[in-house]
Amino acid sequence: MNQSWKSFFCLSALFLAQFSITKAVELKTGPTATLSKEGVVVTWTTDGISGTRLHYGRQPALLNFKEDGGLGITHEVTLEDLEPGPTYHFSLGTAKRWLTSGTLTLSPSGEVVITTEKGDSKTNTSTANPTPAKPKELEKAESQPLPKLTPARPAPIKPPANAPPPQKVPPTSKTWGYIPSLQDHFDRHGRDFQSTSPEDYAAKAWLFLQYAKRNNLPMKWDSADRTLRVWEPRSRAFAAYNANGTTKTFFRPNSDTYWSRQPGRPIKPDELPF
């Protein structure tokens, strides 16, 4: 009897917990960019209190400059050292997660153009000038088509022309290690590979392993936790797999030294346990 009551309460707790999941902070407005005396000021708002973080750099895969701000709903960072002319790539968000990414350009005339990409289609363009622009110039600028969206991360690996025919990907339950975590990994890393769904993300991670095996990509085997780590230097893709070949994670690190810091001994595909 006691056991049945316990089971009843456990099931009820699980049922109630389904409805108590709190939504993560999302981007509400922006980002917008304006030019001030101090530099380019990027502002955005979120639907909840969160930290402020913006990483930027000349290369989409190397966002090596960082600006942080305080906690709040309105976020603002000032980029003091942007040079007029080149396009800068950025990712912004909280310390927990990136909310959006895009490009930012400061023209020699002092105009700031920011393009952002969130999900697959949202675009936000903002221009600013420290001196009031002439109406004609403004009209001309507004009539220009929006610049093509530039992803902050490199494009996915394209198979060469002589690549073998596409492989049939096993079901997600066979390729992803811990299924309940898949949604969170997809939310955080899915956009690194333009994944459209958790299943698509898991499939890409599995295909990456097959690609790595075929092309002898750098691999490290860590016998301490029986984990295989794989690296693709060209596209800067990294993945970790369990000893049965299921995926732990798949993303593109920002750090230049990420792969060299990974533990494990180099291993060849034919030595793998799966």
Partner: peptide
């Protein structure tokens, strides 16, 4: 500082 919100969208928070 952000309110200790449960992070996961797919794994429910324990009661």
């Amino acid at each position: 500082a952000s309110g200790s919100k449960w992070f996961s969208k797919s794994i429910p928070a324990p009661r």
